[in-house]
Amino acid sequence: MGRKKIHVYHALFTSLPVNEAATRAAVENRLEEVKRFRQIGLVRQEALITPGYEPRFHGATNVISKPTERLAIRNADKEAELIRKSELLDKALEGLSLDQREVIERSYLDTKGEFDFISCGEMGISDRTYRRIKASAIRILAAAMGLEVYEVQEEDRSTKHEVG
């Protein structure tokens, strides 16, 4: 990654009040969600067929329940959402450098589950460099996927009340 590109990302993240820990957690959750979807697919919810034996007293609301319809819609929507998230992650990964992409894939998307220090040795870089590359890749992924969590700054609440 060129120096100019690094300065642009650095300026972006230092000028905005981004909560680094919450942003990192959001990116890690998205990576874990996409990893699970790619490994096993969508775990669909099924309708319960066991009736409840407690009496239900309700008034004449003329409202009917369609649990199977709701579940079918939820399953279809959830699968479409996970496919969209997976495609967005692929596009975001294309914007990373080769080292950053390899670090993210080894840390989060591989099925091997290697520790970071093992990946450092296999890549031939130090632990500090590995963590630095990983942190910058997570920042870029957060910006690319729209997962930044901004800090809420409280405004000065001391207002003057004028009597008139």
Rank of each mutant, 00 (worst) to 15 (best):
L71W: 03
R56F: 04
A25P: 06
E79R: 10
F57I: 11
S15H: 07
L12M: 09
P17D: 13
R70T: 00
S86F: 00
E33C: 03
I73W: 00
G59L: 13
N29H: 12
Y53P: 01
R70A: 00
V43A: 06
E33Y: 02
E81I: 00
R74L: 08
D90R: 08
K78F: 10
N62K: 13
E69V: 15
E69T: 15
A21D: 12
K35Y: 06
I40G: 10
E81F: 02
L71V: 01
R30F: 05
H58K: 12
K91D: 14
L71S: 00
V18L: 06
V34I: 15
K85H: 03
S15G: 02
G52S: 04
E28G: 08
L31G: 03
Q39L: 13
G41W: 08
R74Y: 07
I40H: 12
K85R: 11
L48K: 10
L12R: 04
P17Y: 02
E20P: 03
E81Y: 01
E20M: 08
L42N: 11
A72Y: 06
N19C: 09
I64V: 10
A76K: 11
Y53F: 14
E69L: 15
P55Y: 00
A25E: 14
K85N: 07
Q39D: 11
R44C: 08
I40E: 09
R30E: 13
I40C: 07
A47E: 12
R70S: 00
P17S: 07
Q39N: 06
I83N: 13
T61L: 13
R24S: 11
P51E: 04
N19P: 04
L71G: 00
K35W: 06
R56N: 05
I64D: 15
V63F: 11
E79T: 09
A25R: 13
L88D: 08
P55M: 03
N29G: 06
A22L: 15
K85F: 02
E54H: 07
P17Q: 06
G41P: 15
I73K: 01
R36G: 07
E81C: 02
I83G: 03
A26S: 15
P51L: 01
N62L: 14
T14K: 09
R30T: 11
R36H: 11
L71R: 05
E46C: 02
L16E: 04
E32A: 14
S65F: 15
K85Q: 14
V18Y: 00
T23F: 02
N75W: 05
V34D: 06
Y53N: 13
L89K: 02
E79D: 14
P67H: 06
I49F: 04
R38P: 01
N62Y: 09
F13E: 09
V63L: 15
I40P: 00
H58M: 06
R70W: 05
K85S: 05
G59H: 10
A47Y: 02
R56K: 05
E87L: 11
A22C: 05
